[in-house]
């Protein structure tokens, strides 16, 4: 469950400003966030993930008030409870498929990498049909396969919430559907909340709810140098 109240955030004194009076996403709900570029979708996703902190207001994710946590606790919370999926996949080119999936367990001491985790990673890879490519260089995979590796990495810790920032933006139609299928299947099986930022209106019918940022919040005009979705 995600609950945001009286949120106020800005990049510097004269920069972009985002105000969200109230926003709730129920546990297990699948929501699409849409809106024009610069409306603050990615910023709100980063606030929800605890990557940045609001100037004012409350952000509660899975019962934890992120806005009250320090940076280290927010990082620990994020790696354990939130699965992040990115448009550019953000895989590490020097790691093979398996090591990319296991990455969350190698970068935060609050998670312990053991044989059962590796087995889970293998099973996830099998589930998205890349089980035979575990030790392959990620650069040698197709873009669809790369995004599937990124999805496995996002869900390996069994998160309550998946925050996906245009995960299908760089994929062909068949891979788009496939990625969505995987995300929805995980959310259904684990009763996880799915929030996806997208510009692709063809995908919206699959979501239970669509939040239009034009109606949700009132961002100030964005300076040209700020890059936001």
């Amino acid at each position: 469950m995600i609950r945001i109240e009286d949120l106020d955030f800005s990049y510097g004194r004269d920069g972009f400003r985002l105000t969200v009076p109230k926003l709730e996403v129920a546990a297990g709900e699948k929501v699409a966030w849409i809106g024009p570029s610069g409306s603050g979708k990615t910023t709100l996703l980063n606030l929800t993930a605890g990557i940045v902190s609001p100037d004012h207001g409350r952000i509660v994710v899975s019962g934890e008030e992120l806005s009250a946590l320090g940076d280290a606790r927010r990082r620990d919370f994020r790696v354990r409870r939130i699965g992040m999926v990115f448009q550019e996949f953000e895989l590490l080119d020097y790691l093979d498929v398996l090591d990319n999936i296991l990455l969350p367990y190698r970068i935060n001491d609050s998670l312990t990498l053991g044989p059962e985790v590796i087995e889970r990673a293998r099973a996830l890879a099998e589930g998205v049909e890349i089980g035979d490519k575990l030790h392959r260089d990620v650069q040698k995979l197709s873009r669809g396969e790369q995004q599937r590796v990124a999805l496995c990495r996002a869900v390996l810790t069994g998160p309550d919430v998946i925050l996906a920032d245009e995960p299908t933006g760089n994929l062909d139609p068949s891979n788009k559907e496939r990625v969505l299928d995987i995300l929805f299947r995980y959310a259904d099986e684990h009763e996880a909340t799915l929030v996806m930022v997208t510009h692709d209106r063809d995908l919206l019918p699959r979501f239970e709810r669509v939040l239009d940022f034009d109606e949700l919040c009132t961002p100030a005009p964005a300076p040209a140098q700020e890059a936001r979705a």
């Binding site: 980063n46 280290a72 919370f77 994020r78 790696v79 990115f86 969350p104 935060n108």
Partner: peptide
């Protein structure tokens, strides 16, 4: 930055 967004600690 990607690691940090996933939840990498500063110490790591």
């Amino acid at each position: 930055e990607t690691m940090a967004r996933i939840g990498c600690s500063r110490r790591t």
